[in-house]
Design a protein around this nucleic acid. Structure first.
Lengths: 167, 167
DNA sequence: TATTGTTATACTCTATAACTATA
DNA sequence: TATAGTTATAGAGTATAACAATA
């Protein structure tokens, strides 16, 4: 008889999985919509924001290829995003003198200022939200979420560059 | 002197906020990429999947307007998404006989089967991931995450329809 | 020949405005 | 007139293939 050896634990795991599935879909959907809305006032899209963050977290003057990897984009996609960030005056691209195939990408001062503004705004919003949790609960949430995300994303090769998106 | 009254707690809150900011960006970005990749083999996009889930969670035969609300989309956007789901044979739209302005949307049998397949696939993947956590840790994660998401999204009006996206 | 980055192309999503049909 | 849904249009992201310049 190969029924579930431990019905309670098994049942709990299934219902846990359904609960986490719902909350994760909600996060990756509704949270993204909220971020998009927050960025809209600065005429910034989510991929553009991710790119700026990757750029900020990367060593100064990374190449287009490195930037594309860090932001998890393909080369042609990154070209388009960089074109628009460039046009908005948030980044600049300069030919690498030692390898004239490469472009070095930098945040402009305006880009740095925008990122500071956004960081301040995000921080104050998150402080409000996080205040709803006790200090110990906050640490638990971060620790467990980090373990979950690592386990979840390390299954795939999707997340090779998490150190950069993660800053 | 209005310095931080409790330096340790204050400092911890700031660093907690930075940690949660990173992991949240990572979730709403990398996790979405992973979902997109998982759906790709079925020629399904993330918005299409969210729509199918909302449809599955909604009472049978909801209107286009209700579906758009449930999936947090604008009317014209939902028309386009529904067109493609229709063309793929996953949903069907029928004129409401009592109000001929309205369309009633249904999952086709093919659509239901696809959703079952996807649910099975997601479940088995999540079971693997969740197994990395102890039962008590899983419950803690779900509880804390739920509280965080509610606090975070209830700030905005972004998430009016979480019951449906949430199923 | 291999690499860097771009252009060309096609499709999807998103947002706004204008429109049709129904109520 | 108000509502349900669509079409029209434009911009942005995503993916593939082809290309130029450089190494």
């Amino acid at each position: 008889m190969m029924k579930a050896a431990e019905p309670n634990i098994s049942t709990n795991l299934i219902s846990d999985v359904e609960a986490i599935d719902r909350v994760m879909l909600r996060l990756s959907w509704a949270a993204r919509k909220q971020l998009a809305q927050e960025l809209e006032q600065y005429n910034l899209t989510v991929p553009q924001y991710v790119t700026l963050r990757a750029l900020r977290g990367a060593p100064a003057g990374c190449t287009m290829r490195e930037l594309a990897e860090a932001a998890q984009q393909l080369s042609p996609t990154m070209t388009g995003i960089a074109d628009r960030l460039d046009e908005a005056g948030l980044i600049r691209r300069e030919t690498d003198l030692r390898d004239r195939r490469s472009l070095r990408v930098y945040l402009t001062r305006q880009g740095e200022q925008l990122m500071e503004t956004l960081e301040e705004q995000r921080r104050s919003r998150l402080i409000t939200v996080m205040s709803c949790l006790e200090p110990q609960e906050r640490r638990d949430l971060i620790r467990l979420l980090d373990r979950f995300v690592n386990a979840s994303l390390d299954q795939n090769q999707t997340d090779i560059h998490r150190s950069v998106v993660n800053e």
